[in-house]
Design a protein around this nucleic acid. Structure first.
Length: 544
RNA sequence: GGCCCCUUCGUCUAGUGGUCUAGGACUCCGGCCUUUCACGCCGGCAACACGGGUUCGAGUCCCGUAGGGGUCACCA
């Protein structure tokens, strides 16, 4: 970093400032894909500058079991490889990183705000407040609290209390002027102070609210860049007010657009799954995921398991890098061509000022396409390992796997090639793991390839003899055998190969025929052909 | 409704006044390859929301309109 000093002596401070960013999830039990994108931007910004990425848990208002609701989020980050330098599990110099454990910090800040006159005790009742609000609405003007029940001195407070009132702490917001600041994504922004209401920062019971907690924590944790979704932009003035009143330095703000629903500009929400399921691509992704989930014993309830949530991708065998690559391009781009970014490339090239200002809809197809290409580029060994996990979870393969079966699985994965998009796709090729007698023939292909062609049965029976006698059973030899056979019989390869596929796998489509036979091996191949032949005879008889 | 924001192919985007008859990617549609499926390769369809300015020249600057979104809690 030192070289900056010589190249650009005017910005020493900037260059030597350690960038610290944070992501502050509420423990909700799931990790939202849009949240991950925001987290990714934060992570990139910190890491590319040698700074720190902090995970802070915003649990000021949760009564839920923290253990159950936080762990999935942490697991999600771990899976994605978005490591945090400070936060739960890893600790850090500003421990604790849970808002629920930092109440005294907020209370101290509230006290200071009270003492400096930037906040006041408010003795209004909720009903009185609501009435004022309603009146303002009726008169079609902005609601500005009359401050009728404001107590700035102990005497006033005592009087309200003698009326049996209790108080909350409200911000005494400025009533004129503008709040102006520069946002890395949105440029110069400005809000009229006069439109800001006197927000509550501390409840009657002494607990504190989000905005106060947020500002205090960002300051205590020395956060330099606040990168968050745009829905917080309109909250920013009150936070600026708090931080200025407390004498804190203002962080750099970057309000990034939210991730929108597939095919719309509404904010993506996990609550609207029903609606997204009407989207063709979304539904298709969900269904293929659900199918995999079902087979490996993961509960596939659409509300807790769907393409909006990160768990979904992990559970069905996506690659974290593919998800990240897709997400980094959702609202950010380097130039007009580059699409593929490894983690290192992201770190090298990401810059907040190239974040797009408009919201971006979530597109399953494009995510899938990244996944396909990343999976395809994965070395066979790793791909096999991933697939193996799914076979074991589906009880198709023992755990630990027998040595010779390991080789077979590797062969299957290799032969499957890019037909395996997500690792769970291996389950589509379960025919290799099923006992010959348990194999089922899909009806339509059986009819079309076996029953309908008159000579299918004959050719298959004859070729079965050839297979039985074949010298070697590897794919190239088998191919030679079949071609020789066809020539001798005076038929085309197409006249038998389809029937052969159906006989041996039960299905119309699959990967290379000779690979399939080789993997199955002589005994099983011949056995299956015989079973198919028997089935054919049965059906023909039934038809007569 | 007030305030704020956004608006280039169906989707993600490039574009900072002049090779923009608007580029790339995903999808889709053809074709090739091929024993099926998939991949791959080649090709194609497809966009500057609208209306006014400013300018020799506007996707790019200004104003307005429309549409979309966010936000207005003792939630975060």
């Amino acid at each position: 970093m030192a070289h900056y000093y010589f190249e650009n002596p005017l910005s020493i401070d900037d260059d030597f400032m350690t960038i610290r960013t944070r992501f502050a999830p509420s423990p909700t039990g799931y990790l939202h894909i849009g949240g991950v994108r925001t987290a990714l931007f934060n992570w990139l910004l910190a890491k590319q500058a040698g700074g720190q990425f902090i995970l802070r848990i915003d649990d000021t208002d949760t009564r839920r079991n923290l253990e159950d609701t936080l762990q999935p989020i942490l697991d999600g980050f771990s899976w994605l490889g978005l490591d945090w330098d400070e936060g739960p599990e890893v600790g850090g110099p500003h421990t604790p990183y849970f808002q629920s454990q930092r109440l005294e910090h907020y209370q101290t800040a509230a006290k200071r705000l009270l003492a400096s006159g930037h906040a006041y005790r408010d003795y209004s009742s909720p009903e009185e407040m609501a009435a004022e609000r309603e009146t303002a609405e009726k008169e079609k003007r902005d609601f500005v609290y009359s401050r009728t029940w404001m107590a700035e001195t102990d005497e006033q407070a005592a009087e309200f209390e003698s009326q049996g009132r209790s108080f909350v702490v409200r911000l005494k917001m400025p009533r004129e002027g503008k709040c102006e600041f520069r946002d890395v994504v949105r440029g110069d922004v400005s809000f009229d102070w006069g439109r800001e209401s006197d927000h509550v920062i501390q409840r009657g019971d002494g607990t504190c609210l989000y905005h106060l907690a947020n500002v205090v924590d960002d300051h205590d944790f020395e956060v330099t860049h606040v990168v968050r979704a745009v829905e917080h932009l309109s909250n920013t003035p009150r936070q600026v007010f708090i931080l200025q009143s407390l004498g804190y330095e203002m962080p750099q703000y970057a309000h990034v657009p939210f991730v929108a629903e597939p095919g719309s500009k509404n904010k993506l929400s996990k609550r609207k799954i029903d609606q997204y399921l009407n989207n063709k691509e979304f539904k298709r992704l969900y269904q293929s995921g659900a199918e995999i989930a079902k087979r490996i014993g993961v509960e596939a309830d659409p509300y807790s398991f769907n393409p909006v949530l990160v768990d979904f991708y992990r559970d069905i065998g996506f690659l974290p890098d593919a998800v990240l690559n897709y997400l980094v391009l959702l609202g950010w781009s380097l130039d007009d061509k580059t699409e593929n970014f490894s983690r290192e490339e992201m770190l090298e090239h990401f810059s907040a000022d190239r974040i797009v200002r408009s919201e971006a809809s979530f597109d399953c197809q494009k995510l899938l396409s990244f996944q396909a290409s990343y999976m395809n580029a994965l070395p066979l060994k790793q791909k096999t390992k991933m697939c193996l996990g799914f076979l074991q979870k589906a009880d198709l393969v023992s755990d630990p796997v027998a040595c010779e079966q390991g080789d077979v699985i590797s062969q299957i994965v290799e032969a499957a090639g890019d037909r395996i998009c997500m690792a769970g796709d291996i389950l589509k090729f379960d025919t290799f793991f099923i006992a010959d007698e348990d194999m089922e023939f899909e009806d339509k292909p059986f009819q079309k390839r076996m029953v309908k062609p008159e000579n299918a049965g004959f050719l298959l029976a004859e070729f079965n003899k050839v297979l039985n006698a074949a010298d070697s059973f590897d794919a190239p030899s088998l191919e030679a055998e079949l071609h020789g056979f066809c020539e001798a019989q005076g038929v085309g390869v197409g006249d038998i190969i389809h029937a052969l596929r159906v006989a041996v796998t039960g299905k119309a489509a699959g990967f290379g025929m000779f690979d399939t036979l080789a993997i199955l091996g002589r005994q099983r191949s011949c056995n299956r052909i015989q079973i198919a032949l028997d089935e054919l005879a049965k059906r023909v008889e039934a038809n007569q």
